[in-house]
Design a protein around this nucleic acid. Structure first.
Lengths: 121, 121
DNA sequence: GCTTTATTTAACCATACAGTTAATTAACTA
DNA sequence: TAGTTAATTAACTGTATGGTTAAATAAAGC
């Protein structure tokens, strides 16, 4: 069982699933709604599987209404990714102001030990 | 061949590789430097492979200095991820100010067609 | 030239992942 | 109750991924 962040990143590592998220950012949608753009290329079970991956990664939640399973975006997982990204902001932003602020908070709290192993596997 | 963004996300979907990036955010490091925290658990060829994944995803670049291969973070790929994330900022931020601004730019340029298919596969 | 250090390649293995078709379940509709 | 719609499960297939050990390459150092 991989950690949640790995699960989330790997869910995002597929254009079909990213397109589904994009669709959901325009509002709730059922499984078949989500699958519509891909039905020429992909079977319905394949669609269900993709949705399940998004769900397991915490990126969406699924409810039940009659036969439908309306899905919507779940902010939690996206926030985790955003938080992780934040520590690298310095690398893609020209201004280093945020880095200064960040380094101040980090060097203040962390005991500055050697090579760290964040593994959970 | 998957698109670059998919390649990047899938490179980030592994705690070993994220730890390597974290190490690199503290400065350049050779392959064996990068592998040091994992050597109890993982062989050197495994390390090389992980580095290769990061490289292929555009997250790092590798140079050559004598026998060493000093690696450093490449901002490009991180920026692509950050840019992609930006469109979902509304979901994890309590303030919706940025959403307003974003929606203004998007609804202005996009012709507002039906279900879109961003696929490249 | 031989040895050591740093990294890579080759060959292999097990498991995970993305897709398929066929069958099944669940809830509504006539 | 029979039929339709929405989604899922089962069983299977091919390919990608993450690891291994053993062998090869490349640059330095003696």
């Amino acid at each position: 069982m991989p950690d949640t962040l790995s699960l989330t990143f790997s869910a995002l590592a597929d254009p079909t699933r990213r397109a589904m998220l994009a669709r959901l950012s325009r509002g709730e949608a059922s499984i078949s709604d989500l699958g519509k753009p891909f039905r020429k290329r992909m079977s319905l079970p394949a669609i269900t599987k993709h949705v399940k991956v998004l769900e397991r990664a915490g990126l969406i939640t699924k409810a039940r209404r009659a036969q439908q399973r309306p899905c919507k975006i779940n902010p939690e997982a996206l926030k985790d990714v955003a938080d992780w990204m934040e520590q690298y902001r310095q690398y893609w932003e020209e201004s280093f102001d945020r880095l200064d602020a960040y380094l101040k908070t980090v060097t203040a709290t962390e005991p500055k030990k050697g090579d760290t192993d964040e593994q959970s596997k």
